[in-house]
Design a protein around this nucleic acid. Structure first.
Lengths: 193, 193
DNA sequence: TTGTTTCGTTCACCTAAGTTAATAAAATTC
DNA sequence: GAATTTTATTAACTTAGGTGAACGAAACAA
């Protein structure tokens, strides 16, 4: 289980055995069942999550409706807004599938950074890259139509369409489930005509 | 000029005089005229920008049309995707008003981090906060209509409406200039009826 | 100053997404 | 395995954004 994480980290920097042991000793790996809610609206939490296997999802409840804004799958991490800003959470994080995750909290990180400054470099680089990536994705979202976004998802994250219920995908694409159904039918029509 | 920057940084961590001098010696402050293009599509650059005064803007040219996706004003910074990922830029960065900016490059940052590890902590914290903020803004965008986004902009960044031409605001809101015109007329109608 | 370009608004028409509701299909629960 | 809940589809109707075009106002340039 740990090796999945270390393989991932080694893409950014190789870790010594000592450094690996420090991480293992933190006892941050956990197995979570589908449907588990890791964070609730209004909750204060300083936990960050990293997905080794499975799928997590961020959603809001607005006017009684679930609005899904993000999915996190293998090798993706979430540092929730509430953990960074020490404010109650605006959203929920739940587990779409049975998953294996790494859950760390800010204190663990701070003490880790003190012992091994390279951890901080690692986190800075990862944050910077995630920020740049998240802005690219936002730009792509803004500059395309729901249909283009759906087709793009089909290309870039085809697994999501299999793993995730359609009503969650719909709000992730910024539309209603009905519109997504219609949109898909429209695409099939185009192909066969 | 430097003091604007140091006041800002002091919100995250106080700097010693020595540290301040290191920053000043980097000679990173510059004054840029309205209309200056700081980054072009296709260009490789490792420069990041921080706005002390004025306004920068990111835009794409898609099918010959400008699509503005972001504005950066006082105390906001951009680390362009191309600088982080060492790839040619997908977008342009231009100067909406005469501005005073800090332009730093990745080498400067790396050498700075080596001399003063606290700079890295500063950058990590700022990146993490920016990431969290950018995801909140994305979520807000996804979960609201163009009209709500416009009204929200009116509340949260009223200055932008004064500083920026409307056709740039329109694509920032994800709609055409015509739709923005209509949308504004609709809001006035609602108020007066 | 005049001519030119850019910008914002308005209109008519088109298209696609939202809404409400009914129904079918699939997944869960007991 | 039957009952219940959840999820997906379809349809009719409404609403709002996209498109193309025309016009006036403002900004800019010669």
């Amino acid at each position: 289980m740990e090796n999945i994480l270390f393989d991932f980290i080694s893409k950014y920097m190789p870790l010594s055995d000592e450094e690996k042991q420090v991480i293992i000793d933190l006892d941050i790996f956990s197995i979570v069942k589908k449907g588990t809610i890791l964070l609730k609206e209004g909750q204060m939490s300083n936990k960050s999550f990293f997905v080794l296997k499975g799928c997590l999802r961020i959603y809001y409840i607005i006017d009684g409706e679930e609005k899904t804004t993000a999915f996190y799958t293998e090798m993706e991490g979430i540092s929730p807004h509430c953990a960074i800003n020490k404010k109650p959470s605006d959203y929920y994080i739940s587990c779409v599938e049975d998953s294996i995750i790494v859950a760390s909290d800010t204190e663990m990180e701070t003490t880790g950074f003190e012992k091994f400054p390279r951890f901080e470099t690692l986190c800075r680089i990862m944050s910077e890259q995630l920020l740049a990536k998240s802005q690219m994705i936002f730009d792509e979202y803004k500059t395309s139509t729901p249909e283009q976004r759906y087709l793009n998802l089909l290309k870039t994250r085809p697994d999501l369409l299999q793993r995730v219920p359609q009503y969650q995908l719909a709000s992730f694409l910024g539309i209603t489930p009905q519109s997504l159904s219609r949109l898909r039918a429209r695409i099939v029509d185009k192909r066969t005509e």
